[in-house]
Amino acid sequence: MKTKILKFILPAFAIIMAVGLAFATDESNATQTGYYNHPILGVQSISTDCPDFGTVQCMEGPYQVFKDQNLTIPLYEPRE
């Protein structure tokens, strides 16, 4: 009787854990709106996954990407 319960409980527990851990993701990979200054079109918005910290600046083509429309807070390349 114990083995029948164990054979049912362990896989069910594993499935519950897998589903629960699937929702425990890192929010740093979430996309956010970034802005860059196009010389002809002005300030343009894009969807980016660049975080607020790092060492290499986030670029959209030849243009640096910023967090705000005033182009004062730079975004950086995501870490791998």
Score class of each variant (00 low, 15 high):
residue 52 D to P: 00
residue 74 P to T: 11
residue 15 I to L: 13
residue 77 E to D: 02
residue 68 D to F: 12
residue 80 E to W: 02
residue 9 I to F: 11
residue 38 H to L: 09
residue 32 Q to C: 00
residue 37 N to K: 13
residue 12 A to C: 15
residue 34 G to S: 04
residue 26 D to A: 11
residue 37 N to W: 01
residue 7 K to L: 15
residue 13 F to E: 00
residue 45 S to A: 15
residue 6 L to M: 12
residue 62 P to L: 09
residue 31 T to Y: 04
residue 20 G to H: 05
residue 8 F to S: 13
residue 1 M to V: 03
residue 80 E to A: 07
residue 48 T to Y: 03
residue 30 A to D: 15
residue 44 Q to E: 10
residue 19 V to K: 06
residue 70 N to C: 04
residue 71 L to P: 11
residue 70 N to M: 07
residue 44 Q to H: 03
residue 69 Q to L: 12
residue 62 P to T: 13
residue 50 C to T: 09
residue 6 L to R: 07
residue 7 K to A: 14
residue 54 G to W: 11
residue 17 M to I: 14
residue 72 T to L: 11
residue 49 D to P: 01
residue 8 F to M: 12
residue 20 G to F: 11
residue 27 E to R: 00
residue 20 G to C: 07
residue 56 V to G: 00
residue 2 K to I: 05
residue 27 E to K: 00
residue 27 E to G: 00
residue 38 H to R: 11
residue 43 V to I: 15
residue 54 G to V: 12
residue 4 K to Q: 09
residue 59 M to R: 10
residue 52 D to Q: 05
residue 44 Q to N: 14
residue 54 G to C: 12
residue 71 L to S: 10
residue 51 P to T: 04
residue 8 F to C: 13
residue 76 Y to H: 05
residue 8 F to Q: 11
residue 44 Q to V: 13
residue 22 A to Q: 02
residue 36 Y to S: 07
residue 29 N to M: 00
residue 22 A to N: 05
residue 2 K to Q: 13
residue 56 V to D: 10
residue 75 L to A: 06
residue 24 A to Y: 03
residue 8 F to D: 05
residue 19 V to C: 10
residue 47 S to M: 08
residue 5 I to Q: 12
residue 8 F to W: 13
residue 11 P to W: 11
residue 23 F to K: 03
residue 63 Y to V: 07
residue 12 A to Q: 15
residue 78 P to F: 01
residue 41 L to A: 09
residue 22 A to D: 04
residue 11 P to G: 13
residue 37 N to A: 11
residue 51 P to G: 05
residue 49 D to G: 06
residue 28 S to K: 00
residue 76 Y to F: 14
residue 42 G to R: 09
residue 9 I to M: 07
residue 21 L to S: 12
residue 45 S to Y: 03
residue 36 Y to A: 12
residue 61 G to N: 05
residue 55 T to D: 15
residue 64 Q to V: 10
residue 30 A to M: 09
residue 1 M to W: 04
residue 32 Q to H: 02
residue 1 M to I: 02
residue 11 P to A: 12
residue 45 S to D: 15
residue 28 S to A: 06
residue 32 Q to T: 02
residue 22 A to Y: 07
residue 42 G to T: 08
residue 19 V to E: 01
residue 23 F to R: 02
residue 67 K to G: 00
residue 6 L to A: 13
residue 50 C to A: 14
residue 14 A to Q: 08
residue 75 L to H: 08
residue 5 I to L: 15
